[in-house]
């Protein structure tokens, strides 16, 4: 009874499907895009690969930031550090 209000962290991300999300990777890479979905299993325990649309990829290099536009990607979940719902990315 007392646990019904608790939301697991990944259930929060499930609520973000269809809206913009900012993904920060282990390395000097970031992505922003519309979250289209991710694997059901083993959700909501472990974050797996996710599908993003209208993506901007930000790559931070010693020469400065490089951005790439991508229409639709399947992003490997292994190297994800942080997800920011509604995040506009590093340039906002």
């Amino acid at each position: 009874m007392s646990t019904t209000n608790q939301l697991l962290p990944l259930e929060l991300i499930d609520k973000c499907i269809g809206s913009k999300i900012w993904v920060i990777m282990k390395s000097e890479k970031e992505f922003t895009g519309i979250l289209r979905g991710f694997d059901d299993y083993p959700f909501p325990i472990k974050l797996q690969d996710m599908v993003l649309e209208d993506v901007i990829e930000y790559e931070n290099t010693p020469e400065g930031r490089k951005t790439t536009k991508l229409e639709q990607i399947l992003l490997n979940g292994n190297n994800i550090t942080m997800l920011i719902p509604g995040g506009e990315g590093p340039e906002s």
Partner: peptide
């Protein structure tokens, strides 16, 4: 206006046979 969700499996089924860009770590 809102497109339906697309799971990784659906994405993969849709892209087989099409030109793709694969980026490595």
């Amino acid at each position: 206006q809102q497109q339906q969700t697309s799971s990784p499996t659906e994405f993969l089924n849709n892209v087989i046979g099409r030109p793709v860009l694969v980026k490595l770590n």
